[in-house]
Write a protein that binds this DNA or RNA. Structure first.
Lengths: 140, 140
DNA sequence: CTGTATCCTTAGGGATACTG
DNA sequence: CAGTATCCCTAAGGATACAG
């Protein structure tokens, strides 16, 4: 459910992702959920890029509004919150891996795991499915 | 050659693309070059999202700085400029198609060509290569 | 036509303090 | 711990005019 829906600039599918991910922070949260097994506010705060707390609060809420992230109270600790990707969020995996491959190809200074690019180029589907199996998704 | 290089926030490949594409406009220019055969300033101005001229000027320059777009004077008209994707820019095609597929799957209001999603899911490589062959790239 | 320049408004974001 | 609230500054962006 959308808390506040903005007018779309167009119905282009590229524009559609920009309405959600067209900023410098949102995709980093998805990355942390997807590849770094992060799931709490503090864990997101600790990432290298040093997001500030007010921005993090707002971006998490927007991701929740867009159905990409789900927020639940931790079963054992009631004042702790756990963020997980929904299946819609997990569906971003191919996008994320293509982005990673592009960066790895065109910027040698990016920290991509050794052999990723070769593995991805030779067995893309295999790499995707092996990642998919370990993603932190909500399973009810 | 970079006109002004900013400090990177991290060496993460996801962050790397955000340094270039982490805004609401840049990717739309790539989309126009890649899928709509646009190549002049005016053509970019005419897109549905209504970018303003000062933003367009700055984004084109940044894309040129990052080696994603090339700017050349038109051979027949000396005061006219033609923008084309470099091979680095054209390498974004798989990313763009994955983004399109994600949007098409999760937002029914996006204007995606009929049958794209099915074609892409069943013959991804075929779809990519057929797109690749018609992309407006600089070939010298 | 292809931009630049300027002015102005709004959104993004950093720092910090504070609450349940 | 998990945020919210506030203050303040800068960056992003819209409108418009203008230059080569």
């Amino acid at each position: 459910m959308l808390r506040n829906s903005k007018a779309c600039r167009s119905n282009c599918p590229i524009n559609f992702v920009l309405e959600t991910f067209g900023d410098k922070w949102t995709l980093l949260i998805v990355r942390d959920l997807m590849f770094h097994n992060k799931r709490t506010f503090l864990e997101f705060m600790e990432s290298d890029e040093k997001i500030s707390s007010n921005i993090l609060t707002e971006r998490l809420r927007r991701l929740e509004d867009h159905g990409i992230v789900e927020k639940n109270t931790s079963p054992n600790n009631r004042s702790s919150f756990i963020y997980t990707l929904t299946s819609k969020g997990a569906d971003l995996l191919p996008v994320m891996l293509e982005v990673t491959a592009w960066s790895a190809k065109h910027d040698s200074s990016t920290n991509t795991p050794d052999g990723f690019l070769d593995a991805f180029n030779s067995d893309r589907d295999g790499v995707i499915s092996s990642f998919r199996s370990v993603i932190n998704t909500d399973r009810k």
